[in-house]
């Protein structure tokens, strides 16, 4: 069995902590084409995402979060994968991320840096935190104002 320190490292690897401390994509978009708010009431995680779109594909992304380190880091790292994706592309990315959290043996290459979340597979109570930014971006693309990952 791994030590507590090793397990802490699985939930909070260095790259995840780095994004949580200094998240990217913090500059609000002046005129977003789509936006939504994600809120997990049990956790208290809250995130607002803004998107600019070009031909149905994501051209710009920003977020503002009052949330735990996992939500903030996932939102920041997700932003690096979003440019050029349409709704189907984000949904595929979300499915790949869910598979990663589910303990999939092979990490889909599409995830890039998000593969750092593999260790979170052992913390099922925290999956919804990392999943919230994905659900919120999809809500924005769907034209829905709100998202949550607490009602599976």
């Amino acid at each position: 069995m791994s030590t507590p320190d090793a397990r802490a490292g699985e939930a909070y690897p260095a790259q995840v902590l780095a994004h949580a401390r200094q998240p990217r994509f913090q500059t609000p978009l002046p005129a977003p084409d789509a936006q939504a708010e994600g809120f997990n009431v049990l956790c208290g995680d809250r995130i607002r995402v803004m998107l600019s779109l070009r031909g149905g594909r994501i051209a710009g992304y920003a977020f503002h979060a009052q949330a735990c380190a996992l939500t903030v880091a996932a939102a920041s790292m997700l932003g690096e994968r979003l440019p050029g994706l349409d709704h189907a592309g984000v949904a595929r990315l979300r499915d790949d991320f869910d598979a990663l959290l589910g303990g999939a043996p092979a990490v889909p290459p599409t995830l890039g840096g998000l593969a750092e979340f593999a260790g979170l597979a052992r913390f099922p109570a925290r999956h919804r935190c990392a999943q919230l930014p994905f659900a919120t971006v999809l809500a924005a693309l769907d034209g829905r104002a709100h998202a949550t990952t607490e009602e599976a």
């Binding site: 507590p4 802490a8 735990c68 380190a69 996992l70 109570a125 925290r126």
Partner: peptide, 15 residues
Amino acid sequence: GAHAHDLATLLDLEG
């Protein structure tokens, strides 16, 4: 600087 859920996860790992 530390969200309650992150604290609770890390406290849990210490028992």
